[in-house]
Design a protein around this nucleic acid. Sequence first.
DNA 1: GTAATACTTGGAGTTGGCTCCAAGTCAAGC
DNA 2: GCTTGACTTGGAGCCAACTCCAAGTATTAC
Lengths: 125, 125
Amino acid sequence: MTISEVSQKYGISADTLRYYEKAGLIPPVNRKENGIRDYTETDCGWVEFIKCMREAGLSIEMLTQYIALYAKGNRTLQKRKDLLITERDRLKARIHKMQQTLKRLNYKISVYEERIVACEKKLLK
Amino acid sequence: MTISEVSQKYGISADTLRYYEKAGLIPPVNRKENGIRDYTETDCGWVEFIKCMREAGLSIEMLTQYIALYAKGNRTLQKRKDLLITERDRLKARIHKMQQTLKRLNYKISVYEERIVACEKKLLK
DNA sequence: GTAATACTTGGAGTTGGCTCCAAGTCAAGC
DNA sequence: GCTTGACTTGGAGCCAACTCCAAGTATTAC
């Protein structure tokens, strides 16, 4: 798969895909003899994974660390797991906070609803 | 309340508090005769509100719009409500996505657990 | 009265995360 | 064989959201 096809498939610009690779966010992508990127299924899998993690707010720095550990092989299993746990807990906390804020917004919206109804009644008098 | 007290109270730097005010993220803060900020309860309420919304990922641009509408008084009630609804829906969608990612991380962590256990068994043999 | 401290402002600098650009290479179509 | 178009690279530029800085003023402590 070419970079533009992968770009299409995941809705990530080719520039960003190259940036992710250069920054070590995904392992080096497979190349054709002439040096042009030719994404394998595995490469695509990494792209999809990183897209998902980025959208959830995990930092590029952390994901880079994770990939660096991955590249070092089996002896980093525990470290990788620890990293994921840290990020999982952070994500959990963020979600919790956002849920509180969601409730608050819903409440605020309901208050606006009441106020708007009250205003309309006043105008009808 | 002085800016540094408010900074302490909410864990927001004085610079950021000034930036928020200048950018129109919070209505102009009460001042003493000499021009020094003297946050009222209401001012603090706004700070707390904006802190909450920023932490949930609402953009400065959107919050600025909201405050601008607020400053125009009652005739912007409907618009403000609409703005809040848009942001509420966005927030909901983000939370949903993050929950999916949370599940994925949890699954990944469990896979690591198994692999680590398997590795340890191998070593004991 | 003067030194220290906490504030004021406008504006420059920084960071994270892209996004764009110039210059070059290569394969395909005419 | 030459143009077109998709790719390559390194590096510059951009945007959101702060963060820092210099120069100045006001209050308090001695």
